[in-house]
Simulated scan of single mutants.
Amino acid sequence: MALAGAAALAWGEWVNWRWSRALVGNAEGPAEAVVVLGFRNPQASANLVNRWRVRAGVRSIGADDPRGTRVIFSGGATDNAIAEAQLMADYAKSVLAFKGPLVLEDRSGTTWENITNVIPVLEDIDRIKIVSQPAHALKARAYLRRQRPDLADRLVRADDYRPGEWTIVKPLLALYGLWTLRGLTAGERRGTG
């Protein structure tokens, strides 16, 4: 039983690690954007998932020019609540003391809309990082590749996967990820599409 549990944890780590590295390259240039995708948030403050995504977004900022990185929070309102983008921005400023440039995209209700609605803000960016749980970020990168292959060539890896972080739930995240990624081609899931 312990061996099966260890195998499940190792599998969850491996799948999430692989997804975090799919459909990214080595784009270079001074202008960087970190796109943080929101998660359903019907309450008046950022929930656990959105707080983690904001922290992963902030730690994804390049060390060479942290104040010049454009952080884009993307997510609309759910259940007539405050937009996910606003809740994440509030958390970044009030709890993490983030003082860099912020852009709010607060109309999106789906991952496809997240990407569609942030494209205008990415036109002048050299390096694009998309932050979420690895399967969700991969899905968003695939959507950017479908909508704007020229911008997708600017995708680089975000710091949204770390070994040992969320370890206990990574097998469940991996199973859910397999289900949510079923609309992607095999090449997109492997990072070759």
Results as ranks from 00 to 15, higher is better:
4 A>D: 10
6 A>Y: 06
6 A>P: 02
7 A>L: 14
7 A>K: 11
15 V>M: 10
17 W>V: 02
18 R>M: 10
18 R>H: 12
21 R>H: 15
22 A>M: 07
23 L>Y: 08
24 V>Q: 01
27 A>P: 01
29 G>L: 08
29 G>A: 05
30 P>E: 15
31 A>P: 04
32 E>Y: 06
35 V>L: 09
37 L>V: 12
42 P>W: 05
44 A>E: 14
44 A>M: 09
45 S>W: 05
46 A>P: 08
48 L>Y: 07
51 R>E: 07
54 V>T: 06
54 V>H: 03
58 V>T: 08
60 S>R: 03
60 S>Y: 02
62 G>W: 01
68 G>P: 02
70 R>V: 10
70 R>I: 09
72 I>N: 00
73 F>T: 01
76 G>N: 06
78 T>G: 09
78 T>D: 12
79 D>H: 14
80 N>L: 09
80 N>Q: 15
83 A>W: 00
83 A>S: 13
84 E>I: 11
85 A>D: 01
89 A>M: 07
89 A>F: 00
89 A>E: 06
92 A>N: 04
96 L>N: 09
101 P>D: 11
103 V>K: 10
105 E>W: 05
105 E>R: 05
106 D>W: 00
107 R>N: 12
110 T>E: 07
114 N>R: 01
115 I>N: 05
115 I>Y: 00
115 I>S: 04
116 T>D: 13
116 T>A: 13
116 T>C: 03
117 N>T: 08
118 V>S: 04
120 P>E: 04
120 P>G: 09
123 E>F: 00
124 D>L: 09
125 I>G: 08
126 D>A: 08
128 I>L: 10
131 V>H: 10
132 S>V: 09
133 Q>H: 15
139 K>H: 15
140 A>D: 15
140 A>E: 13
142 A>C: 10
143 Y>P: 04
143 Y>H: 13
144 L>C: 02
144 L>N: 10
147 Q>Y: 13
148 R>E: 05
149 P>Q: 11
154 R>G: 03
156 V>H: 01
160 D>R: 10
160 D>W: 10
160 D>L: 09
161 Y>L: 07
164 G>Y: 08
166 W>F: 15
166 W>E: 14
169 V>F: 11
170 K>F: 04
172 L>F: 14
174 A>C: 04
181 L>A: 11
181 L>E: 12
181 L>N: 11
182 R>F: 08
182 R>H: 07
185 T>I: 03
185 T>Y: 04
187 G>W: 06
188 E>P: 09
189 R>F: 05
189 R>I: 15
193 G>M: 05
193 G>T: 09
